[in-house]
């Protein structure tokens, strides 16, 4: 049973340019799905559509987003907002900008529980302390009273992870949650996300362009090119034998763990041309 099911999702710029082309993907309850693709492919756009935070310059032109069996797009805006707040959460890309600089950490973790889900403040605070311990933050009491600028990037990402898990959501979208961090911190954060995901049995949509990370964290993956899903498979099958030529080239372009310094091959031009033709053919079919 899919906890998140995206069906034929289309998103366009206001001038009609397509950004997402009938994207379909499912994340089963408790499953980790990776979403890979080069920069500008539309990975973040999918996450934004699910969480209801599409930029003003784009609009959703078709498709369904089922969260826990309920079509989000069919709900009135206020209900949709609250449903998303209760059942899903975002682990953002840049921990340095994702916390409100003028508010203390504590309220930034508890606010959703108190304001949206109606918890009592002391309960929410106890929960926040518990979560901060879970993400291995020392002296959580002091951290709760701190302001973001007093904490390191790694600490802030831990806090954002704690905050994402606060309402015990059954879907978390992590949009390149480690790219803004130091390499050493990246590994710890990745490990932490996996640990939390396993403990809480949360479905996780993990956006990345690092195939090396994919094999470590996810069970299934979707490959996106120009806003179109060109491969949807489970991770084992993908690494054994990717079906699409573009996926093959992408895999070949990733350095192996056994040889991390191995040369990075760009995706060959003829393969890019082939996948571009595929996208063009799809668009032509759409416009008929």
């Amino acid at each position: 049973m899919s906890y998140l099911s995206i069906q034929d999702l289309s998103v366009r710029l206001r001038n009609g340019l397509p950004l997402l082309r009938k994207v379909s993907l499912d994340v089963k309850a408790g499953e980790v799905r990776a979403l890979v693709g080069e920069s500008g492919a539309g990975k973040s756009m999918i996450g934004k559509a699910v969480l209801g935070i599409l930029p003003r310059a784009v609009r959703l032109t078709g498709g369904k987003i089922l969260l826990d069996g309920e079509d989000l797009l069919a709900l009135p805006p206020k209900t949709r907002r609250q449903r998303i707040g209760a059942k899903a959460a975002l682990i953002p890309q840049d921990p340095l900008t994702a916390l409100n600089p003028s508010r203390r950490i504590g309220p930034q973790i508890t606010d959703r529980l108190v304001d949206i889900l109606g918890w009592k403040r002391p309960e929410a605070e106890a929960r926040a302390l518990e979560l901060l311990e879970e993400v291995h933050i020392q002296s959580p009491g002091r951290v709760m009273k701190s302001y973001p600028h007093e904490l390191s990037g790694g600490m802030r990402q831990r806090i954002l992870i704690a905050s994402a898990f606060a309402a015990e959501p059954k879907l978390i979208i992590a949009d390149e949650p480690t790219t803004a961090l130091d390499v050493t911190v990246q590994k710890q954060i990745l490990k932490l996300i996996r640990e939390m995901q396993e403990r809480h049995q949360t479905a996780l949509l993990f956006v990345t362009h690092d195939l090396g990370v994919v094999s470590k964290i996810s069970q299934s993956l979707s490959v996106l090119y120009a806003g179109k899903v060109i491969e949807d498979t489970d991770v084992r099958a993908f690494f054994d034998a990717p079906r699409h030529a573009y996926s093959k080239a992408l895999l070949a372009a990733t350095p192996k763990y056994t040889d991390p310094d191995g040369s990075l091959m760009p995706v060959p031009d003829n393969i890019i041309a082939a996948v571009e033709r595929e996208v063009a053919a799809f668009d032509a079919q759409m416009n008929e």
């Binding site: 935070i53 953002p92 840049d94 900008t97 600089p101 003028s102 949206i116």
Partner: peptide, 26 residues
């Protein structure tokens, strides 16, 4: 346009409370 505003949106806050609660103090 700041990221913490976007994050507050995903939590379920209305536009009005985001403007007065998150944006105004900054």
């Amino acid at each position: 346009h700041d990221d913490y505003i976007t994050l507050a949106r995903t939590k379920g806050y209305s536009e009005t409370s985001i403007i007065t609660r998150d944006a105004l103090p900054n």
